[in-house]
Amino acid sequence: MKVSVGDVVLPGDYCEEISAAGEKSKVIVGPGLQKESNHVYVTKAGVLKKKNPNTYWVDYYQKRYTPARGENVIGIVIQKAGDIYRVDLGSSMSAALSYLSFEGATKKNRPNVQIGDVVYAKTLVGSKDMEPELVCVDSYGKKGRLGVLTDGFLFKCSINLIRKILNPSCPLLDSLKNEWPFELAAGMNGRIWIKAKTMRETIALGNAILGAEYLSDEEIKAMCANIASILAGHVA
């Protein structure tokens, strides 16, 4: 079926708008779209979106992660094998994280990472079918925010929710940060690590994040206020 931007689309639909735009200038075809002979076909069920000038993609609901290059992800170390750690990202394959891709690590000076630890890392190599490769340093060899995450709590959520809370226009984190202090790391693989002073605050934080998934901006603000009042004990 022929569809246009903003429609709910299903796999097999095609969009002539994209092909037409492609004749005039270069077009970026994002996730959920595939070029096949003379049409651009939809391969996922979702909403067709466009960003000016010429970027198209399908916004679809997904829980399973397909690795992509340059994304910040949270993984669990599951094995030490030779000179790499195996890290579970929730994708089809476990990822490889070299001993040497930590800040200040050398062959002699190995980082202290145990099996079962949670690492916040960046994907260096990531594609649908290949083993992803992770690093915990940037291109200058600095760790920045990456590395092992200690304490706190890790939970899973849909990938859409991650995108939603990381969106600069989303009021969730802005509202929460005024209520109580916390640390948070959001991995694009659908995992969120949170840490607050007390367990109750940590749970409240997780509650607020998970609860925000299907709420509008206004509702999110109301929910944050509600949770904060529960936390403060105003609501019996």
Partner: peptide, 10 residues
């Protein structure tokens, strides 16, 4: 299914 230390401890 892998469960991390932090989930377990928490």
């Amino acid at each position: 299914v892998y469960i991390s230390h932090c989930e377990k401890d928490f």
